[in-house]
């Protein structure tokens, strides 16, 4: 089914089946009513003076509607499943070859470590751009073992990568529930209400302090914001790869957050220097001078130390809660 199949159909049926058409037209300032008129008839009878005032030509409007409807219909196509992502090494800043081929699978967590300016962002950008030797590092990215379709580069519906940045400000004046619903609607999920409920529940399980559905997103704490975004990313984003720029310690259960992303079969790449997060990863990529200098696989000794580190972390968390509730720390 495509745009041309929809043209001869009456608006009474179309607007019911494809409500986004109303939204599309209203974003150009046009009104539309369900009735016996066909979509084609509606478009042909638009007042040209009105279009001139709205700043759009009849031809351009039809072209945009064509592209929009075809894009929306494509959202229903089953998404190509990403079973593996392969990184073929390029060169560091001095031109030394990285000499590596690394294959990542859904459910894996890869940590990226290295000082500021070492090239962590470039690595993440190479993956997002699905580099084919055409970036400064000369790296290549394969998906399912093959050179991927270029749609991964430009499509907003089929974005390969969702990114959780360190800064987490909200600018929208909405409640948490409205915000998630708006996001769900923009992704055209079926049964958005269920998704919204699920995401808010998950977010509250991750956040140290719970929040209500009607809490404005702008008043969420840092931890609550991150919890909401991780839950949202896990449950709503179709992107198979998640890039995380450090999950800060405060106010969020980091282990649960990573577990959630792993359950949703995401490939997680995380820039972090937090010992607990780093040891939770399957591998660590050490970035130096713009290149991947070393790949460390978490050893058994490290895994054992993770348990000790988690105990330490829980002790600190308990102290944090005592401070929050107004206690003193004379005896710890």
């Amino acid at each position: 089914m495509n745009y041309y199949d929809l043209l001869p159909r009456p608006l009474s049926e179309l607007l019911e089946e494809h409500p986004y058409i109303v939204d599309f037209l209203s974003s150009f300032g046009l009104e539309v009513e369900a009735g016996p008129t066909t979509l084609q008839g509606y478009l042909e009878n638009l007042d040209l003076d009105l279009l001139e005032d709205l700043g759009v030509g009849a031809e351009q409007l039809q072209q945009s509607l064509h592209d929009f409807i075809n894009g929306m219909l494509a959202l229903d196509d089953p998404l190509d499943k990403v079973n593996s992502l392969t990184l073929i090494g390029g060169f560091d800043k001095s031109g030394t070859a990285e000499n590596l081929e690394l294959t990542l699978k859904p459910g894996e967590i890869i940590c990226i470590v290295g000082p500021t300016g070492s090239g962590k962002s470039r690595l993440l950008a190479d993956i997002e751009w699905v580099a084919q030797g055409d970036t400064p590092t000369g790296r290549k990215i394969l998906i399912n073992g093959e050179v991927p379709d270029s749609k991964w580069r430009f499509s907003t519906e089929h974005k390969l990568v969702a990114q959780l940045s360190q800064n987490m400000n909200f600018v929208m004046d909405l409640s948490a529930e409205e915000f998630v619903r708006m996001h769900a609607e923009s992704r055209l999920v079926t049964e958005p209400e269920k998704k919204v409920e699920m995401i808010l529940k998950q977010a509250n399980e991750l956040a140290g302090e719970t929040f209500l559905p009607d809490t404005p997103v702008t008043s969420l704490s840092g931890g609550q914001s991150r919890a909401l975004m991780i839950a949202d990313m896990a449950c709503l984003s179709k992107s198979p790869i998640v890039l995380i720029d450090e999950i800060e310690n405060a106010g969020i259960d980091r282990k649960k957050a990573l577990d959630l992303l792993m359950r949703e079969e995401k490939i997680v790449l995380m820039a972090t220097h937090d010992p607990i997060l780093a040891l939770m990863g399957d591998k660590r990529l050490v970035i130096k001078n713009g290149g991947i200098a070393r790949i460390i696989e978490a050893s058994d000794a490290e895994r054992k130390n993770l348990i000790a580190l988690e105990e330490l972390d829980n002790q600190l968390l308990a102290l944090r809660n005592r401070i929050r509730s107004g206690e003193t720390l004379e005896n710890i």
């Binding site: 945009s64 430009f154 800064n167």
Partner: peptide, 27 residues
């Protein structure tokens, strides 16, 4: 200015841009 808003807001904003210019390359 994507670095100062959340991933969800970036996605919602991009989808709003897509709505008014579905033929464009959005970056």
């Amino acid at each position: 200015k994507g670095d100062i808003v959340s991933q969800a807001e970036r996605e919602v904003f991009a989808s709003r841009v897509k709505q008014v210019n579905p033929g464009a390359i959005i970056m």
